[in-house]
Design a protein around this nucleic acid. Structure first.
Lengths: 162, 162
DNA sequence: TATTGTTATACTCTATAACTATA
DNA sequence: TATAGTTATAGAGTATAACAATA
């Protein structure tokens, strides 16, 4: 069944028949699908008082393993944002008692960001819900289709990043 | 070759071996690939003094065909943003002389947004460049792979939107 | 001098609410 | 009363630049 992207491509065929708009089939659906997924995931985050950025910080700390400590600079690299943006995310999380900052004993300039007990509890509660939401979305594709999709996306990512 | 998403999944296997994180292979790559593509496309837009939002408005007007006129409400529906956001996008474009507002003779409440000659020239210049960028990204996949990818994304979109 | 990290500041984008005008 | 559109306002998020402290 045709979707909005099909209609857009059809419009271009009519209006600019000389242009090759075939890449839009992939790029158009990529951005729309990513947006729809983002909105869907945000609902689950909100049920736990979180947004995607906060969830990302807490999940990064959790999956780093005990003692659940990471330097702000590493958080910035993982999230691909500035260290300033990280500091401001951390301010919010720290004011809610979900993370705390500790001095790095080996480097006086450095800081560790650590999960508090409350932060660990929250992310450990939210994570299964989040995975359930992801599963609900991806389960329309069987295992093989998911592997194909992941592989094609990975190759596209490499091409876009160069 | 393993990428960042592979490493994240491996971390979860180590730290939370009981959790099924297989959906992350698809969802994680979807968001990262969409972001990488968005950044790549923004470069081309910037070469023409545009951002994605402005390009979107101008392209929507162009592909609607002569006389290149659309109501703001329809622009809001296509871009999935509020009519207020549309009005503010239009203010910027109008101040640059790329679009102009016209009264709707059939409905005193209504407005038409129309491409100016300058706006039409700009989008007709930027569009081929944009398509070239999209082609450069998608051409790492052959025609059949692109069709598979578009189809899988479409199904995922449907699942996420429900 | 370079690096880590924070804060001050400004910018962009958006939505909500209030408002005008017309149907 | 409902609809189309705009503006005023406030909020969220970010990056740049300035700053402090340590390597």
């Amino acid at each position: 069944m045709p979707d909005q992207v099909d209609r857009i491509i059809e419009q271009w065929h009519t209006e600019k028949p000389d242009l090759d708009v075939t890449p839009m089939a992939v790029i158009g659906r990529l951005s729309r699908t990513a947006m729809a997924v983002e909105l869907r995931l945000a609902r689950t985050f909100a049920e736990h008082g979180l947004d995607a950025a906060s969830f990302d910080v807490l999940a990064t700390l959790l999956r780093s393993g005990a003692p659940y400590r990471i330097a702000p600079l590493e958080l910035a690299r993982e999230a691909m944002i500035s260290t300033s943006a990280v500091a401001q995310r951390l301010n919010k999380l720290e004011s809610r008692g979900l993370v705390l900052r500790q001095a790095n004993p080996n480097d006086g300039r450095g800081t560790f960001v650590a999960l508090t007990d409350a932060g660990k509890l929250l992310i450990e509660t939210a994570l299964p819900d989040h995975l359930e939401t992801e599963h609900a979305i991806t389960s329309v594709l069987n295992r093989g289709e998911q592997e194909v999709l992941a592989s094609l996306l990975q190759r596209l990512n490499t091409a876009a990043s160069s």
